[in-house]
Simulated assay, not measured.
Amino acid sequence: MTSLIDIREDGHVHTRLCNHAVGEMEEYVQQAVERGLTTLVFLEHLETEIRYQPRSWLDDADFALYFREGERLKQQYREVIDIKLGVETGYNPEAAEAIRRRLARYPVERVGLSCHFHRHGDVHLNLLSRRRQSLDQLAAIGADAVVTAYFAALTEAVATLDCDVLCHLDAVLRHLPGIRFNDDHRRQIGELLDAMQAHSVALEINTSGFDYRGTPFPAGWIVTEALRRNIPLRAGSDAHHPAEVGRHFKRLPDLLAVLPA
């Protein structure tokens, strides 16, 4: 553990239940134990009133299995590792009340916040997908407009939902070549961080970014701005395979140590 982040906790892993990861829950627990972690947080995908195929989140039956198996693992490994059962809640501005109702139904121990989809007509487009069809349609809409809507949605979500941590803040359109944030986007990020500070929402340092672009999500300047606001940091691997649990965590202390003051 450093003074800035606890690298003994992986606060963001997925399993086969989300339909785009692999591995059983217990395999993730075993990997976390092998890597010497003290805490593992499952953060399975929850989306509400999203029209997109193939489904990349859990339905009610999946969540029933998730919490049942999660409770079994919590008991079985209670002397070895602390397991928490959470959700990564994708924000849909048209379904805020429905999201709150769903969260109230589940025994959720941590709520991660994200925004994976952009409404386009009668369907939703995946903002983090590498699928060519989604990327082409999002590019046709205009990257600047899509990014503007993304940050506006996250800022609204922080003020609307009871959440604990904001996930992969700047990963929007991560597969679109040449994506850049303009001055208005940087202003929006500042407003988003202000909202996180006001609502006591932590910032995830998502180490999957090392594999996508050589640095975590979000960029260093965003982390610096978060620290200036005394926003706490949480490490998350965003693992979609057991082998990815805790990936690149040992790189975080050195990376954070050289952030500009």
Rank of each mutant, 00 (worst) to 15 (best):
residue 249 F to R: 02
residue 92 N to M: 01
residue 31 Q to H: 06
residue 45 H to V: 09
residue 16 R to H: 15
residue 79 E to A: 06
residue 255 L to F: 01
residue 209 G to N: 11
residue 54 P to E: 10
residue 256 L to M: 12
residue 150 Y to S: 14
residue 75 Q to S: 15
residue 218 P to L: 14
residue 132 R to L: 00
residue 103 L to Y: 07
residue 153 A to C: 12
residue 129 S to V: 08
residue 95 A to K: 03
residue 119 R to C: 01
residue 56 S to K: 00
residue 244 E to N: 15
residue 176 L to A: 12
residue 93 P to D: 09
residue 179 I to G: 02
residue 73 L to D: 09
residue 170 D to T: 12
residue 191 E to A: 06
residue 139 A to P: 15
residue 93 P to T: 10
residue 2 T to S: 14
residue 142 G to M: 07
residue 20 H to G: 08
residue 201 V to C: 02
residue 226 A to M: 13
residue 220 G to D: 11
residue 247 R to A: 05
residue 179 I to Y: 13
residue 166 L to Y: 02
residue 32 A to M: 12
residue 212 Y to I: 05
residue 71 E to Q: 10
residue 85 L to M: 12
residue 11 G to R: 09
residue 84 K to Q: 10
residue 198 A to N: 05
residue 248 H to C: 10
residue 82 D to Q: 13
residue 29 V to H: 00
residue 198 A to E: 12
residue 261 A to H: 14
residue 174 R to A: 11
residue 202 A to V: 03
residue 144 D to L: 03
residue 116 H to M: 06
residue 138 L to E: 05
residue 11 G to Y: 03
residue 98 A to D: 07
residue 197 Q to D: 08
residue 143 A to Y: 02
residue 245 V to A: 08
residue 64 A to V: 09
residue 31 Q to R: 01
residue 133 Q to P: 06
residue 197 Q to H: 15
residue 232 P to V: 00
residue 1 M to W: 04
residue 180 R to K: 08
residue 224 T to E: 06
residue 38 T to A: 14
residue 44 E to F: 01
residue 100 R to F: 02
residue 140 A to M: 05
residue 133 Q to Y: 12
residue 122 D to Q: 07
residue 41 V to S: 07
residue 201 V to P: 10
residue 128 L to F: 00
residue 223 V to A: 03
residue 183 D to M: 07
residue 196 M to T: 09
residue 24 E to I: 08
residue 201 V to M: 09
residue 239 A to W: 11
residue 149 A to V: 07
residue 60 D to V: 08
residue 139 A to L: 08
residue 101 R to E: 01
residue 130 R to Q: 04
residue 134 S to R: 02
residue 39 T to H: 05
residue 233 L to S: 07
residue 189 I to G: 00
residue 52 Y to Q: 14
residue 89 T to Q: 04
residue 181 F to R: 05
residue 218 P to Q: 13
residue 131 R to M: 12
residue 79 E to T: 05
residue 233 L to M: 03
residue 178 G to I: 15
residue 121 G to T: 09
residue 146 V to R: 15
residue 248 H to V: 07
residue 165 V to A: 02
residue 42 F to C: 04
residue 22 V to T: 15
residue 218 P to C: 10
residue 214 G to C: 15
residue 102 R to P: 02
residue 154 L to N: 04
residue 5 I to A: 06
residue 188 Q to A: 12
residue 238 D to H: 01
residue 40 L to H: 12
residue 183 D to R: 15
residue 176 L to G: 01
residue 126 N to D: 05
residue 238 D to R: 00
residue 127 L to C: 00
residue 166 L to H: 02
residue 69 E to I: 03
residue 44 E to V: 04
residue 89 T to R: 01
residue 16 R to N: 13
residue 192 L to I: 06
residue 232 P to K: 02
residue 142 G to Q: 09
residue 96 A to K: 06
residue 25 M to T: 11
residue 108 V to A: 14
residue 244 E to G: 01
residue 2 T to W: 08
residue 158 V to E: 07
residue 6 D to F: 01
residue 261 A to I: 04
residue 160 T to C: 14
residue 64 A to M: 13
residue 188 Q to F: 08
residue 50 I to C: 04
residue 40 L to T: 03
residue 194 D to R: 13
residue 212 Y to E: 11
residue 44 E to A: 01
residue 87 V to H: 04
residue 190 G to S: 06
residue 97 E to L: 14
residue 122 D to W: 11
residue 197 Q to T: 10
residue 76 Q to G: 04
residue 166 L to W: 11
residue 124 H to V: 08
residue 72 R to G: 06
